[in-house]
Design a protein around this nucleic acid. Sequence first.
DNA 1: GTGAAAGCGCTAACAC
DNA 2: GTGTTAGCGCTTTCAC
Lengths: 331, 331
Amino acid sequence: MSIKRIQERTGFSYSTISRVLNGKAKEFRISDPTRDAIMEAAKEINYRPNMLAQSLRMRKTYTIGLIVPDIQNPFFGELAWRIERKLRGHGYSTILCNTDEISENEEFYLQVLVDRRVDGIIIAPVHTEEWPGLEEIRRRRSVVLIDRTFYETDMPWVTSSNEQAADQMASALLRLGFTRIAFLGGVPGTYVNTVRFWGFRKAFERQGLPIDNDLVLNEGYSPAAGEKMMTDLLARSPDIRAVFCVNNLVFLGAMKTVQTHELKTADRILMSAFDISPYCGMFKRPLVCASQNREKLADTAVSLLLRGIEDPLGTHDHVTIPIDLSLYRIA
Amino acid sequence: MSIKRIQERTGFSYSTISRVLNGKAKEFRISDPTRDAIMEAAKEINYRPNMLAQSLRMRKTYTIGLIVPDIQNPFFGELAWRIERKLRGHGYSTILCNTDEISENEEFYLQVLVDRRVDGIIIAPVHTEEWPGLEEIRRRRSVVLIDRTFYETDMPWVTSSNEQAADQMASALLRLGFTRIAFLGGVPGTYVNTVRFWGFRKAFERQGLPIDNDLVLNEGYSPAAGEKMMTDLLARSPDIRAVFCVNNLVFLGAMKTVQTHELKTADRILMSAFDISPYCGMFKRPLVCASQNREKLADTAVSLLLRGIEDPLGTHDHVTIPIDLSLYRIA
DNA sequence: GTGAAAGCGCTAACAC
DNA sequence: GTGTTAGCGCTTTCAC
């Protein structure tokens, strides 16, 4: 009952006060003394509008939901940081949701966000298809897919050129003479994992080379999974000399194992991975890495989201951001 | 007007419907047929309560604010992950706020969170003192400090034994024979930076050794700052053989520089840092590291927060979590 | 120029 | 057992 307090102090009515407070004094031709009195009273009682009441009335919460698989992953950390920062500039707050790659969590959070009447949702989905629940949500609100997309959808999304980059990365290794390359993947069936494997496979196909299925592992996107996969791999194929890690976390774990196993430089394994640019240069060894443009991903997602808030069903943009491929200290 | 829709369908009144929907059918001895009819109608129109209306009415938002300096930092990433996860289990959603170590941002966000009527706030503050604004907020809501605290306050907080750990870490280096140790610090004046430096200094004082101020740098908590500090350091004191990094990000940057500068193993620098356990073992070199117990930090913060929500002014707990010191592959 | 009053969707005190 | 109604704090239409 904050406006009421101003009312008691100044004697003016709800509507007049509301108008002044919303900077519509001019518009409604409210007299200067009235305006000043109200503004002063507001200042005195340190008036702050109740956003809940405003939101209920206006049907606008200035809140968006950000659904990511894992905020611990610095890749999503940076996306979250950029998204939150940009959105804040537009007056929005960001609700953080972690799915841990579990689709039930995703569904749960979407429900929560809808219940909270968020104005929009940016999501790196676990699902790989547009499911009815999401479709329903998308009809009434702005929803943008980031990092991952559905194979066929008219929802707006922004991803990177994953398949192409994976192809290039594998091709680079093949060109260097490695024909046996291990693929350390993440959660099977997941968009990024699948698409990057496609690129990996393409590189082999182009050269007419077979992929050894014993060298293809998919145990999850964490350092722990990376460590385990690398350990298993070295046990089964001690002669392996090139490894393709599907993401930064898998690389972190795999690298740990590699460092404790490699004895002579002659045994050195050429590591490659996505999104390890922060770590490139930290190792005295060749490294091949593909870096997503996290800034563009985030900025694009926010732009699409805001556009969707204006017109939920009118936004269908599909944006693919190119990926930089870098070779670090390759001979 | 969702309840209204159920009303139209079933003919029952608002209150009856509201009671059934809130599972208070038994309590108000509502007849089974009535309850069933209402439940079915709810199911049919896929009823979902409007949280805004509920919050406005109940003066309870089931929302908490999490204010961190930098969600890109995996340390805060893990805290955020754990906090969000635990809170979700209690029905709360988490609003993410990044201050980037800028106190104006902190003040801005606190205002936003208050305007949004959050039930509580977990904050790793930039400020080092309890300022009037926060005090005011704390009178009406649950506020918990995490990772950092004020030197004197009766607000609830949870931190780690930073000073002691820094002391132990520096002492370990001294014991190994390094008397010239560089301190690569973060944002000057910041709690963590200050307290860890105290510990660092204490170790020297105990041995009656002086600290060379040329070896003490404080340029910020980022990898970029770490890289720069290390570069400057090596330019000024090429003979440096032991480095103390105030946090994980500074370490990442410093390590990059070190790796490109070190030529012979004989030139090797012993690196030490806080919270680099995920990276320990990734380097074929000795490393000294102190790891905060991120799980306990997060869990404690949430417990204190929830307790504070019950009774904002009755919670004054100050919890210090011990820090593990690990030496990785020291001789 | 300003005020009265309805209504956003919900809960709960009170009535019957 | 169920209904009526006030009110959470705000915006806005309509009236004067």
